[in-house]
């Protein structure tokens, strides 16, 4: 049982490593946010679940921590993506479509009338 937990923790550490490699390789802010959010959430959840297997007596606080990270991490990535769009950080040249721009222009024309 303890060995299973240790292996799950090791897997989580590798997922965190993938998050940091993706942060270096991706070309613009939004893609970095994608990789950063998903991989770091799963990495932390996996390493904490592994610790639940190793130390069953600590499961209360660890489960609280897991739920907390699952709830707050996506929210902070939404807020960062919105702020990045708001202060007009440019997209990479490989971007194909931007529906938000079209809708924003429609909205401003409507309010000016």
């Amino acid at each position: 049982m303890e060995l299973v937990g240790a292996i799950i923790t090791l897997l989580g550490a590798f997922v965190l490593l993938i998050a940091s490699i993706g942060l270096i390789r991706m070309p613009d802010v939004y893609n970095r946010l994608q990789v950063g959010t998903k991989a770091s959430t799963l990495g932390t959840i996996l390493s904490l679940i592994g610790l639940v297997f190793i130390m069953p007596g600590w499961s209360g606080k660890l489960i609280l921590l897991i739920f907390f990270i699952m709830m707050t991490n996506p929210v902070s990535s939404h807020v960062l993506a919105r702020a990045a769009y708001f202060i007009k950080i440019p997209f990479t040249s490989r971007t194909v479509v931007d529906k938000l721009k079209v809708s924003e222009r429609a909205l401003t024309i409507k309010t000016e009338d």
């Binding site: 993938i18 993706g22 390789r25 194909v96």
Partner: peptide
């Protein structure tokens, strides 16, 4: 779905040609 998305992200990050085609949809 969380596990699937991480396999997807891993494949995209580690492949040398970086297969992305990003955009914002509604």
């Amino acid at each position: 779905d969380l596990l699937k998305s991480n396999m997807d992200v891993t494949r995209r990050v580690l492949s040398p040609s970086l297969p992305i085609r990003p955009g914002i949809v509604e």
